[in-house]
Design a protein around this nucleic acid. Structure first.
Lengths: 197, 197
DNA sequence: AACTTATGTAGACATTGTCAACTTCAGGGC
DNA sequence: GCCCTGAAGTTGACAATGTCTACATAAGTT
């Protein structure tokens, strides 16, 4: 409880939490290891006892981001009415909302700030999110709603569309005066019309 | 010719060219002002006589990237056969190819490494690229090929899909063993089927 | 109680972005 | 031809960062 014992106890968790909090403040994507240490109240080299280097910490954070994204998608799916089209909309919006609520984290997950993004995205912890989409497509095809095409391709289309929309939104390029009142809905509609036969 | 006069002459151009060359080497997105100066053979502070700071140089580079993207799209459009569907495919592939050939530059354009991405993307020099897509959609609607929907929404859908695919590709997530042999084609097909009515 | 090991601290180093003060040189008004 | 003003480059400094090494402290094991 004192928090002032020489040994912090679970500094690792504190570092991760602090980093997540810093990312939420956004602040234009400035993030330094030393600042994390400062906020955690430890010396600037302490994080190195828990992460080999800055990239490792960021990778861990990104993986947590993927897990949270998966949770968000699953929650939306569960809460959606028992209608496949409505479910599609719910999942899509959950994805976009996640990006909007965690801009810096989302950018970290996809932005290439991490060295080997490929390996990161292929980790089991990161793959869960895309499983939600694939699941949906498989059920959609089984129900005869979604066109019978290779699911992988359709999933790629969904993923690309959602990711693209999220990035455009993050970059502030979806302002109504620039792109129409409900361009997002229109774009999602175009995707939907491409999927359902 | 001597290149050794105290005053370099057109250092600004040299700095830009060197930066572009460095971005092409990729090297995992390391880029420092001082390295540029070193390669250009000038002192480490010389770039400051031409750019107020690092961000300004990067913004300029990003704008050049948008111009090149526009050129690539236009070239593909012109070279395409006189068939709207073929033109669509040509433009799409040109976009993806651009991203694949200039990964670091592409990431710079969209990756949020630049402070105010919104302002950047709204510059006239950056808007040209999206004009190519909008043009295509308008002609497509006029010809009765593309569904009569708000063009802005359709353009958003196209842009999101192309951008999303490019990013997935850059992150190495479109490997055949992971996502099927021709997932890109399938994704583009889904988009096309959503656009043409 | 002594040893080992995980965890934290202090200090150093090279590198970076940026600024201020100095130097060089090209061009225009006399 | 000279001067002198200002643009373009240079040198040197500063604070901050990522990372390493050496040291200190605590927790557990034997």
């Amino acid at each position: 409880m004192t928090e002032r014992s020489y040994h912090h106890g679970d500094l690792r968790r504190v570092i991760i939490d602090t980093t997540l909090r810093m990312l939420k403040e956004d602040g234009g994507w400035q993030f330094t290891l030393r600042e994390v240490a400062r906020r955690a109240g430890v010396s600037h080299a302490a994080p190195y006892k828990h992460f080999p280097d800055k990239a490792a910490l960021l990778s861990e954070i990104a993986l947590i981001g993927f897990e949270r994204l998966q949770e968000a998608l699953l929650a939306a799916q569960v809460a959606a009415p028992d209608d496949l089209l409505a479910e599609f909309t719910a999942i899509s919006h959950a994805y976009l909302t996640f990006g909007q609520n965690n801009p810096a984290l989302y950018r970290l997950m996809f932005g290439g700030a991490i060295a080997d993004t490929a390996k990161l995205h292929l980790e089991p912890r990161a793959l869960g999110a895309s499983r939600v989409v694939i699941d949906f497509l498989e059920r959609g095809q089984a129900a005869g709603l979604v066109r019978k095409r290779p699911v992988q391709g359709q999933a790629t289309a969904c993923w690309a569309q959602l990711h693209g929309l999220t990035m455009l939104q993050l970059d502030g390029l979806l302002m109504p005066e620039k792109v129409g009142e409900n361009a997002v809905e229109a774009a999602l509609a175009a995707l939907r019309e491409g999927l359902v036969g």
